[in-house]
Nucleic acid binder design. Structure first.
Lengths: 177, 177
DNA sequence: TATTGTTATACTCTATAACTATA
DNA sequence: TATAGTTATAGAGTATAACAATA
């Protein structure tokens, strides 16, 4: 049996669908109910469920705002890592972003074709190539980063700045071990 | 141009890969660096990036622990929603979990084939069918839920119980609007 | 006319094997 | 012998269109 991928746990949300009037036969008592009318109180106690839904909400806005730049989240991550780490290799990007090398090839090729990055010979390893942003790439990445930073505040407008800081710090504590 | 999916933002992490000795040419000053040696300080300020990585960390453990039950995260969510909302319809599950109806069909069919759920005629709408857990399904869901609850604490062992509560509450504030 | 569940199918994303050039 | 980058391709996940039955 093939291992299930993690991918299906995040999905792009679409236009809200009007929920049918079929109420659940016996909703659990106690917990508040979601907008769908279903009892989701248990799932909402789970960090995985909450992190997935929060990531989903943020990424949805991200997709919309980054569309003008022609950048998916992964493209933005790649471009940003190159911007902050000029000369970085494909292999390093793969390790950091957990992308398999064969799947990065197309992205790099595409960014190169768009004239956003340049591949220069690596100073000490002739197998590798150092990745750099072109002038145009620097320009685009700068704009995209501004957009991402602005987005950061917009998607968390239900939180105080202090709460956002706390949230980010706690999330980092979960995945940095 | 086809819209990018949100799926590529989450991926199953694999065995850690030894990072090459190619250091970045000019790491940004100030921020602490990730284990890969790259400067990821900016990305780590982004809620989307942090939520994605945290979800990734949790889901990875989830996949491993739920494998004995033959349940992917989405299967567990479906089973759990049916458990807590007996008589729920496919349409309601789709709305709550943001699954497209055609993609839920196979999952429901599979759970039915495994004898975990039963499809009964809907009391008031002959188009729909009410979903219920079988005795075996109830048993499995109960065990799986116990596993999920235990996992919840294990993956957050770098957090105090109070911090975990805070984290979950803040995440809910992000996606509940 | 709209909705539930469904089939068929296209497209995107993720993973594995294997090759070359170099270390 | 191992690693960086690459190609080809298989497998899993996500999306749209369209249909029959019912509301």
């Amino acid at each position: 049996m093939p291992e299930p991928s993690v991918a299906n746990t995040l999905r792009r949300p679409r236009a809200p669908r009007k929920t049918a009037g079929t109420a659940p036969a016996s909703p659990s008592a106690g917990g508040p109910e979601a907008s769908s009318g279903l009892d989701t109180s248990y799932l909402e106690t789970l960090l995985g469920y909450n992190a997935r839904r929060a990531a989903l909400a943020v990424i949805t806005v991200f997709l919309r705002r980054m569309a003008p730049f022609g950048l998916r989240p992964v493209d933005f991550s790649v471009l940003t890592l190159i911007a902050h780490n000029p000369g970085v290799t494909s292999r390093q990007l793969c390790a950091e972003l957990d992308i398999l090398p064969p799947n990065l090839v197309g992205m790099i090729k595409n960014l190169d074709k768009r004239g956003l990055i340049e591949r220069k010979p690596h100073p000490s390893d002739r197998r590798a190539q150092g990745l750099h942003l072109s002038a145009e790439g620097k320009q685009l990445q700068k704009q995209a980063q501004l957009t991402a930073t602005r987005l950061e505040h917009d998607v968390s407008d239900t939180l105080t700045p202090a709460e956002l800081d706390t949230l980010n710090a706690l999330l980092r504590k979960v995945y940095q071990r």
